[in-house]
Write a protein that binds this DNA or RNA. Structure first.
Length: 428
RNA sequence: GGAGAGAUGGCAGAGUGGUCGAAUGCAUUCGCUUGGAAAGCGAACAGACUGUCAAAGGUCUCGGGAGUUCGAAUCUCCCUCUCUCCUCCA
């Protein structure tokens, strides 16, 4: 949620952001026009109310309250009518502003490169050129099925398209990846959380997902609960409606959860393999920090995610998303992309964003610098560290052997207890 | 799913129609005291909006909404949530 006061103060700034994000900027003038009317209506109503309160106070102070009440009743009745009329104007105006404001995306950081789409994202660094293979690498879905560790056919039988069954070494490897990610997050100071996977509408709204993923979410309509599309939601909303002590900051949380997405807008895209599933696992990192620390926090959060790829010795690159590709909540985003030799392309495996005060304002997450200080909004950041399914994909494709077997990355061996998956699906 | 109890400021907890945004205690902050600290004493201490250079001031909020009344934390109705017991259950 954008700050209305900021919009009022610097409308041109929002107009520029709208242009850079390639969305229409009419809403700026719409909001400002409604805001003028709203404030006028409020002032009028409040002045009348103050008048009435003064009369009521006179009755309270009178010795003969009954007499005073009888005497002032006509005046009060007249004020009442005018107050009702003045107040009636407020809710519709309020609702109009809320409706517009809650659909406006976050401001963009000045460092975000201009661009019209994902092709304009800027590579800021990489782990070097992807290695040249000595044989033709296969895509992970062929490898997985041949090894008997991923079963797409039976998943479809159980649940339809975009689901998968992991089996044997595949399931074990996946679990090891999660354990590895969580262990590293712990080492780096994150507090592990095991959150609910179903959250209320309020929670979902508070982190900005209800707009962004509105059609993309699975939900139970009876209880009006939503299945989380990412652990960002419960982790960020953990301190919703709280005023934190400054010495608690920064808060660093991690969680391993399944994520559920309808992928309604992705019909026909990535239909093969583990890349785009209705249900996938992810380890998420979330920071709550003081505003002046969020730039630095984004670098550290990104570095924490990046270190996992480096330790797994997977080829990757880091992208600064361009203005048109930065998502609704974020002011600035780094994507981590991993090289997939089976498909000869880089693929997103993590997205690390600084959401500044945008989610904090929706979720009312504040902190106080001093005992008597005014509450301020925290800045929230989130990033994947990492997407588990896509990590599995990357491992299969990058660590495949010519005979169809898989070598386990060294860093993972202590977590899964085997060093390879043989062509027949057994482990060594 | 059945029955009952409850929801007040950071916490605990008073307050059943009128100077109540709210006693008191704890916590916190500042001052006095002290060589320093503790104790003691004094003071400050909810959030939002509006207003101002800054103030003063104004409006709203005692889970949420509607109502009764000149006036509601207090009375009425609806909703939500929490707790306890029973039932069920990993």
């Amino acid at each position: 949620m954008l700050d209305l006061a900021l919009l009022r103060r610097e409308p041109d700034r929002m107009r520029r952001v709208a242009a850079r994000r390639a969305i229409g900027g009419d809403f700026v003038d719409d909001v400002l026009a409604i805001d003028v009317r709203l404030r006028a209506a409020r002032t009028t109503a409040e002045a009348l109310q103050a008048e009435k309160n003064a009369l009521t106070a006179r009755i309270s102070q009178a010795t003969d309250k009954g007499a005073a009440a009888r005497e002032l009743r006509p005046q009060i009745a007249d004020l009442d009518a005018r107050i009702v009329a003045a107040n009636a104007e407020i809710p519709p105006l309020d609702a109009q502003i809320d409706a517009i404001l809650s659909e406006i995306p976050n401001l963009l950081d000045d460092t975000v490169p201009d661009g019209a789409g994902e092709d304009d994202n800027v590579v800021v660094r990489d782990s070097g050129p992807p290695p040249v293979a000595t044989f033709t690498a296969k895509p992970h879905y062929e490898l997985g099925e041949a090894l008997g560790i991923i079963d797409f056919e039976r998943a479809t039988k159980l649940s339809g398209a975009r689901f998968s069954v992991l089996r044997g070494a595949g399931a074990r490897l996946s679990r090891a990846v999660v354990a590895f990610f969580l262990a590293r997050a712990h080492d780096r100071g994150y507090t592990e959380i095991a959150p609910p996977l179903l959250v209320t509408r309020d929670t979902m709204w508070s982190t900005g997902q209800l707009t962004k993923f509105a059609d993309a979410m699975f939900r139970d309509t009876d209880a009006d609960l939503f299945m989380i599309p990412t652990a960002e939601v419960p982790l960020t909303a953990l301190h919703r409606d709280e005023i934190l002590n400054a010495d608690l900051l920064p808060l660093q949380y991690t969680a391993h959860t399944p994520c559920f997405r309808k992928e309604a807008g992705a019909a026909g895209k990535d239909t093969r393999g583990l890349i785009r599933q209705h249900q996938f696992e992810k380890v998420e990192l979330v920071w709550l920090v003081a505003p002046e620390k969020s730039d630095e926090a984004l670098e550290r959060l990104t570095a924490d995610s990046e270190a996992l790829l480096a330790e797994l010795e997977l080829p990757y690159r880091v992208l600064a998303l361009c203005s048109a590709d930065v998502s609704f909540n974020a002011a600035r985003t780094y994507d981590l992309e991993v090289w997939l030799p089976g498909q000869q392309l880089y693929r997103e495996i993590s997205s690390c964003s600084n959401c500044t005060d945008f989610q904090a304002r929706r979720a009312q997450i504040r902190f106080r610098r001093e005992a008597k200080g005014k509450p301020e909004f925290v800045h929230t950041l989130n990033g994947s560290a990492l997407a588990v399914g896509r990590t599995l994909v990357a491992i299969l494709e990058n660590y495949q052997r010519e005979d169809g077997g898989i070598t386990i990355p060294r860093a993972l061996v202590p977590f899964c207890g085997f060093t390879s998956i043989e062509p027949d699906g057994t482990t060594r």
